[in-house]
Computed example of a mutant assay.
Amino acid sequence: MCGRYSLSKSKIELEERFQAEMLTDFKPRYNIAPTQLVPVITSDSPKGFSFFYWGITPDFGQNKPVAQKLINARAETIHEKISFKSSFQKRRCLIPADGFYEWKRLGKKTKIPYRFTLRDEETFAFAGIWEEYENVNGESNHTFLILTTSPNEVVDEIHDRMPVILSREEEKKWLDKYTSESDLLEMLNPLAPELMVSYTVSPLVNSVQNDSPGIIRKTSPMDQFGNYTLFG
């Protein structure tokens, strides 16, 4: 599962990286969570950024725990499940990011947050699918899901799933409506572990109310809890 990620780049940096125009103001985000409105690039509009809700809209998700919200789709079955098949074939998207978070359990009550990034700290893109529907007021809403796969050796120490991270070459193919299903499925593998790093971060990331640069700063478990030593 991927339930939190960061996008700490500026609007100008994102436009340059993805060669796409962003018509809306954007401030760097350090703690993106489900139901929030965030930038994506769709197969319908590859030269511009769109702003879609992650998983479901806030109104629909009100008073529902995160466990009940659909925010990810398993890459292994994306082409088979009726609920995802059409989006996989026709409505694919890139979700820009520069890191994602997972939590390592330490005992029954304590979990330590980790941030995963590319080794060069560059911006990348998750593979995603998107959907359009009308709400109860007849307004059009757009949502997206992040595809997940089995973990590489870096993520496996913390979690049993990881988001699909595409290479730059794969990003273009992922948005191309004429890419074959077999070629699409070949992209949905774990990123090579030598391209990634991970480190512990502040427990401030645990609350979606916190969204500041300090969240992505390296913090040892000792700093977090006062008496733990740093571990792998």
Rank of each mutant, 00 (worst) to 15 (best):
G3Y: 11
Y5G: 03
S6I: 04
S6Y: 07
L7F: 07
S8E: 09
K9E: 05
K9H: 09
K11E: 09
I12Q: 15
L14I: 01
E15V: 05
F18K: 07
Q19V: 03
A20C: 07
M22G: 01
D25W: 12
D25P: 08
D25A: 12
F26D: 08
A33G: 08
T35H: 04
T35M: 08
L37Y: 12
V40Q: 03
T42Q: 12
S43R: 06
S45D: 15
P46N: 09
G48R: 04
G48S: 14
S50Q: 12
Y53S: 11
W54I: 12
W54Y: 09
G61E: 04
Q62I: 05
Q62E: 13
N63M: 15
N63D: 13
N63Y: 14
P65D: 08
N72T: 15
N72H: 09
E76K: 03
T77P: 03
I78Y: 03
E80T: 15
I82Q: 15
F84L: 09
K85E: 03
S87P: 02
R92M: 03
R92A: 04
C93Q: 08
A97S: 13
F100G: 03
Y101L: 07
Y101S: 11
Y101K: 02
W103K: 11
K104I: 00
R105W: 09
R105F: 02
R105G: 06
K108S: 10
T110K: 14
I112R: 10
P113A: 05
P113C: 08
R115F: 04
R119D: 09
T123H: 06
A125D: 10
I129Y: 00
I129L: 00
E131V: 13
E132G: 07
G138P: 12
S140P: 06
N141C: 13
N141F: 05
T148D: 07
T148N: 05
P151C: 00
P151R: 01
P151F: 01
N152G: 03
E153I: 00
D156P: 00
H159W: 01
R161K: 14
V164G: 02
I165D: 08
L166Q: 09
E169N: 02
W174V: 06
L175M: 10
D176K: 03
K177F: 11
Y178N: 07
S180W: 07
S180F: 05
E181Q: 15
L184R: 06
L185V: 00
E186Y: 05
M187H: 11
P190V: 02
P190I: 03
P193N: 07
E194D: 15
L195N: 14
V197A: 05
S202V: 13
V205W: 00
S207V: 08
N210Y: 07
D211G: 05
T219W: 04
T219P: 00
P221R: 04
P221E: 04
F225G: 02
G226W: 11
G226I: 00
G226Q: 10
N227V: 05
T229I: 11
